[in-house]
C-alpha cells in the first residue's frame, strides 16, 4: 500500500452474536471478508482503502454490488439476523475506528437488530394488463352507449366524441388502477410488519405497474402471505411478482 493511501474498513453488514469468522476471499474484488466483534454484535468487513469504489464501467459496478449482496446473503444464511449496509459504506481509519463506532452506536444497533430479528424483506410488484382492463372498461354501460351514439354522428362530430370517449376510458383505467392499489395495499399492510412503497417502473408490453412495494415479513408468516398473494394473482388482468428473501435493506436505514 502506498503511503498516500489511507486505510479504511469496508462494512457489509452487522450480525447478532459474538462471532469470530474468516469467510475467505468472497468480498468485493476478492478481498478477504472477516468479522470484527464487539460485545454481542459483529461487523462483517474487509480492509480497504479509505475511498469509495468508483467506476464508469457499469459491468464492474454491477459485479461489485453483486459481491456485496453475496456477502450479506451468506451472512444472513449462516447467522440469521443482519443489518445490511448499502454498497460503498466505508469507515475511515483502522479497525479500531469501527469498534469505536460500534461502541457509541451500540444501543441503536441493538434496537435495529431487534426490529428485524426473525424477519425478512420481500419485494412485491403488481401490474395490470392494459388490454384486458381496457376491454373491461369498454363493457361499461356509459362507454357502450357513447360508442353507439358515435356511429350515427356526422364525421367531424364523431371524431370529437371519439376523442372524448378515449379520455374517459383513460380516466376509468386510472380509477380502476387506484381501486386495485387500495385493495392490494390493504391486504399487504395487514399481512406484514412494515412496508415501503417504491417507485413504479415504466409500462412495458402494455403491463402497467400499479404497486411496487418492499415488505418486512416474519419468517413464520411468509407462506401464508405468499398464499394470499396467489389469490390476487388469479384476478383477471392482474399479475404479481413476489421476490426474496432479502436482507432487510429497506427497513434499517435511519
Amino acid at each position: 500500500m502506498k503511503k498516500t493511501e489511507h486505510e479504511g474498513v469496508y462494512l457489509y453488514c452487522i450480525v447478532e452474536g459474538d462471532i469470530t469468522e474468516d469467510f475467505g476471499r468472497i468480498g468485493i474484488e476478492k478481498n478477504r471478508v472477516y468479522t470484527l466483534p464487539f460485545k454481542d454484535v459483529s461487523a462483517v468487513v474487509h480492509s480497504s482503502k479509505a475511498e469509495p469504489y468508483n467506476s464508469k464501467d457499469e459491468r464492474i459496478v454491477k459485479e461489485w454490488i453483486l459481491s456485496h449482496q453475496n456477502v450479506v446473503d451468506k451472512t444472513m444464511e449462516k447467522y440469521g439476523t443482519v443489518i445490511p449496509f448499502s454498497f460503498d459504506t466505508i469507515i475511515r481509519g483502522k479497525e479500531k475506528n469501527l469498534k469505536d463506532w460500534l461502541e457509541t452506536d451500540y444501543k441503536n444497533i441493538k434496537n435495529k437488530l431487534r426490529s428485524v430479528k426473525g424477519k425478512k424483506e420481500y419485494g412485491i410488484q403488481i401490474s395490470i394488463d392494459e388490454k384486458i382492463i381496457t376491454k373491461e372498461v369498454e363493457k361499461k354501460e356509459e362507454i357502450r352507449k357513447l360508442k353507439e351514439k358515435i356511429e350515427k354522428l356526422p364525421k367531424g362530430t364523431a371524431y370529437m366524441f371519439t376523442q372524448q370517449m378515449k379520455n374517459r376510458i383513460k380516466n376509468e383505467i386510472e380509477n380502476k388502477s387506484k381501486e386495485l392499489f387500495d385493495e392490494f395495499y390493504t391486504k399487504i399492510k395487514k399481512g406484514s410488519i412494515d412496508t415501503r412503497i417504491e417507485k413504479n417502473k415504466d409500462t412495458q408490453n402494455e403491463k402497467r405497474m400499479i404497486l411496487n412495494v418492499s415488505v418486512l415479513l416474519k419468517n413464520e408468516n411468509i407462506k401464508a402471505f405468499g398464499d394470499d398473494l396467489e389469490k390476487i394473482n388469479k384476478k383477471e388482468g392482474v399479475s404479481i411478482r413476489f421476490v426474496g428473501p432479502f436482507a432487510p435493506y429497506s427497513f434499517v436505514s435511519n
Binding site: P154, K155, G156, T157, Y159, M160, Q163, Q164
Partner: peptide
C-alpha cells in the same frame, strides 16, 4: 387545441355545427 375543444363541447358552449367543423378541422 383538441383538449380545449372537448372541454367546450362538454360545457355545451359549442353549437352542433361548430363541433362538426372543429372535428373536421382536427381530422
Amino acid at each position: 387545441i383538441q383538449i380545449q375543444g372537448i372541454k367546450r363541447m362538454e360545457k355545451g358552449s359549442l353549437t352542433d355545427e361548430e363541433v362538426e367543423r372543429f372535428g373536421n378541422a382536427l381530422m
